[in-house]
Simulated assay, not measured.
Amino acid sequence: MRVRMTGLAGLVAVAALLAAAPPASAAPGDASAHGAELDLSLLGGNAVTAGPFAAADANGPTTGTFAAADVPGVLKTGVVDTSATRDDKTGGVHSRAVTADVRLDLLASATGAITAEVVEAECDATQKGVVGRSKLAGVGLGRLGEVAVEPAPNTVLDVDLVGVDIARVVFNEQVRNRDGSLTVNAIHVTLIGGVLGALGSGDLVVSSATCGPAGLPIPMASGAGLWLALGLLGLIAVPTGAVVLRRRRAMA
Rank of each mutant, 00 (worst) to 15 (best):
G241S: 11
R168D: 01
P153W: 07
A100R: 15
F66Q: 09
G223A: 04
M251I: 15
A54H: 06
E37K: 08
P219N: 03
D101C: 08
G138Y: 09
G35E: 08
S181H: 08
T77N: 08
G10D: 06
A15Q: 03
E37R: 10
E173V: 01
L17V: 09
E37P: 00
T240D: 11
A31M: 03
A116F: 04
G223P: 02
L40M: 11
A24K: 02
L11T: 12
T49S: 13
A152S: 14
G215C: 09
R2S: 11
G45R: 04
L11K: 00
T183N: 05
C211Y: 01
V79N: 06
R2A: 11
A26Y: 11
R143D: 11
A26W: 14
G241D: 05
R247N: 12
P72N: 11
G132W: 06
A69Q: 09
G51C: 06
L106R: 12
T63G: 04
L18C: 06
D203K: 03
G29Q: 10
A214V: 03
A16C: 05
S83P: 00
G29E: 10
A97V: 03
A56T: 08
R168Q: 15
G180H: 13
A242W: 06
A229N: 07
R96M: 04
L191D: 01
E37V: 09
S41H: 04
R168K: 15
R248G: 07
T183P: 01
P153H: 06
I166V: 15
L8H: 01
I187A: 08
V243W: 08
S95C: 05
G138F: 06
L157R: 14
P23W: 12
A252Y: 03
A67V: 13
V169W: 03
V48K: 06
H34I: 01
G197Q: 07
